[in-house]
């Protein structure tokens, strides 16, 4: 059967704007990936736990509430604590440029702003999984 790229798409925190997350989830599915969609109002703890049980290669978070500087670092920390720091974290939403640089320094692989072509996200995921997935 061969390995498939598995991605968890989640919306942490309190904002309910899930259109972006759904568009990305659908695009990744259409690109042949297995997408675990966990829906709204996730805590970083829930996301880490789900990602571990699902053995995903990548976690994609969508944040439009301004809570990115809390959510992303907490998730990085939780994955490291649980021995799952091989899982790459990407994200999207409304995130100011200066915060993007900070978050990428803290261990977030890549952040995609509004207007991103879903093909760029697909390509990024494929490239970053190339060493673990045939």
């Amino acid at each position: 059967m061969g390995k498939k790229i598995r991605v968890l798409v989640a919306k942490p925190g309190l904002d309910g704007h899930d259109r972006g997350a759904k568009v990305v989830a659908n695009a990744l599915r259409d690109a042949g990936m297995e997408v675990v969609y966990t829906g709204l109002h996730q805590t970083p703890e829930m996301i880490a736990e789900s990602a571990i049980q699902e053995d995903v290669d990548v976690i994609g978070l969508s944040i439009l509430s301004g809570a990115h500087l809390t959510m992303f670092p907490r998730l990085v920390e939780l994955l490291a604590e649980r021995g799952a720091d091989h899982i790459k974290i990407i994200g999207g939403g409304i995130i100011p440029d200066e915060d993007i640089a900070r978050l990428e320094e803290m261990g977030v692989s890549r952040l995609f702003g509004p207007g991103t072509d879903t093909r760029d996200i697909i390509e990024f995921i494929r490239k970053s999984c190339a060493d673990s997935v045939s």
Partner: peptide, 29 residues
Amino acid sequence: SGGALLGDRIRMQRLTGDPGVFVRSLASR
């Protein structure tokens, strides 16, 4: 496409975090 959208966890969120439960989504492949 060979891809899948695995959405069953949405309804099972309340099980997440309980070490007595292990949930795994599978695609029918």
